[in-house]
Design a protein around this nucleic acid. Structure first.
Lengths: 247, 247
DNA sequence: TGAGTACTTCTGAAAATGAGGATAACCCTC
DNA sequence: GAGGGTTATCCTCATTTTCAGAAGTACTCA
């Protein structure tokens, strides 16, 4: 059979129905704690339950575009904001029955790191949307297998801080070393030695770049003005910032 | 609308046709060089061209099971062999048009590390199957977007050797430090300082475990008998075995 | 003005690294 | 069975990196 001929005889309806969604684990830091964006579903299945934001991939849309579109829809970010958000593919989940609907739904999970964002807007499919402290999600039962997806996202985030400059995506365009340290402390959930952290960050090549300026005033409760830095152009940290007590 | 009612009214045929496959990047070491398992396609599309092994996910099959099944089918491995093979999800590809068939095909790529395996068996869909040296794949045009998938797999492998004990998956159940070194050299494509490598491997906690035995005879061209080790139970290497000259 | 806070720098000990040499066990060939 | 080349393993030593704590200083708040 010729290839062209074969293409014509192909009958897609012979295949069982399948759908593909993207779901987003969007992490940010608020009040020195790691938060994740969750929505309260406004439609079945799992109506009224909390879930990760996401939705079906459109017909002619590539996966990264679908993830970026959902991110915009759920956070109200503009395109220029989006440049400061890191978005990467996390993992794909497809266990039969993970979605109760009568078609098999695979979901390609994406992980996003965002600087402090405004309160999210509940879009058409959602009753509600909110930043939830990660600590509070442990007791929540999320819709679908979203608890598992969230756990995978957090674990990936913890790993990635070690060898990539992604912590800078959680802070503003200019930041102090202390701000950067609170990011690491929030994501890893442990205190770091401030002096060593400082030295280490500055010794990593192209991690941060001095701006020459400082904060307007010292810390809330005293202390000198801190120098301001902006992200460097490193894509990998050498040497890496290894997490302590990881035996 | 009640949830049960909604489920009944759901009409899957309203959705455009979608398929999901798994494709495998199966790496091994032969003659001190990194090889990948490729098949020559026996069916359209891309009949006669080389491609990664893979196939459609079955109806009630989870993704890891589909990957393991394809791995067995293409390599002729038994279940007990499979325990010594590392299999992990790599990335999902779904760009519209990546598959010329009139349904949109997403592929969930998996990465496998295997010890030296027998010659592969061409299964029903393939004309031919072979271990191809990685160096030779640079000039080959693979079917679909498989060149991109292969590149992603190799990059992941190079990274993972640094901080995970996966190199032990390329060798037999018992191995010498030199064998382990040839794995690193093959995957990274550079020579390592044998004495320092030796010291470093033994200093990483729970990377390898002494068996108390040695090889039956020295190396091909001389040298003393080498001690035999088996994999330890570390899941992360501390400290990591960093690749040299990575600026 | 004084007390407290926290950014930044410094110090000395401990650990890891890189390059090379030394030793001894082993293979092969003559 | 003697000798040369080969390789596993150990050792040394200079250099670099890491860690923990202390010190200095610039700021905020009362």
């Amino acid at each position: 059979m010729e290839e062209a001929e074969w293409l014509n005889s192909y009958e897609p309806r012979d295949y069982p129905p399948v759908g593909v969604t993207v779901d987003l684990v969007i992490l940010t830091i608020r009040d020195k704690e790691l938060h994740v964006l969750l929505i309260e579903r406004g439609q079945p299945p799992f109506e009224g339950e909390w879930a990760l934001p996401g939705g079906f991939v459109l017909n002619d849309e590539d996966l990264p575009d679908a993830a970026a579109r959902e991110l915009r829809e759920e956070t109200g970010l503009t395109q220029s904001d989006l440049d400061r958000v890191h978005l990467e593919q996390l993992k794909t989940f497809g266990k039969p029955g993970r979605d109760p609907r009568p078609l098999r739904v695979y979901t390609v999970a994406y992980l996003a790191f965002a600087p402090r964002l405004p309160e999210p807007v509940a879009d058409t499919d959602a009753k509600n949307a909110a930043w939830i402290p990660l600590a509070a999600t442990g007791e929540m039962k999320l819709a679908f297998d979203h608890s598992e997806i969230l756990a995978a996202g957090v674990e990936r985030a913890r790993d990635k801080l070690e060898y990539s400059p992604l912590a800078t995506r959680f802070v503003g365009p200019e930041f102090t070393i202390s701000e950067l340290r609170t990011v690491y402390e929030a994501v890893w959930g442990e205190q770091l030695h401030a002096a060593n952290f400082h030295r280490k960050v500055l010794s990593v090549r192209n991690f941060v770049e001095e701006t020459g300026r400082t904060t307007e005033r010292g810390g809330e409760r005293g202390g000198p003005r801190a120098r301001l830095y902006r992200p460097g152009d490193a894509t990998q940290l050498h040497p890496a910032l290894l997490r302590p007590t990881t035996e």
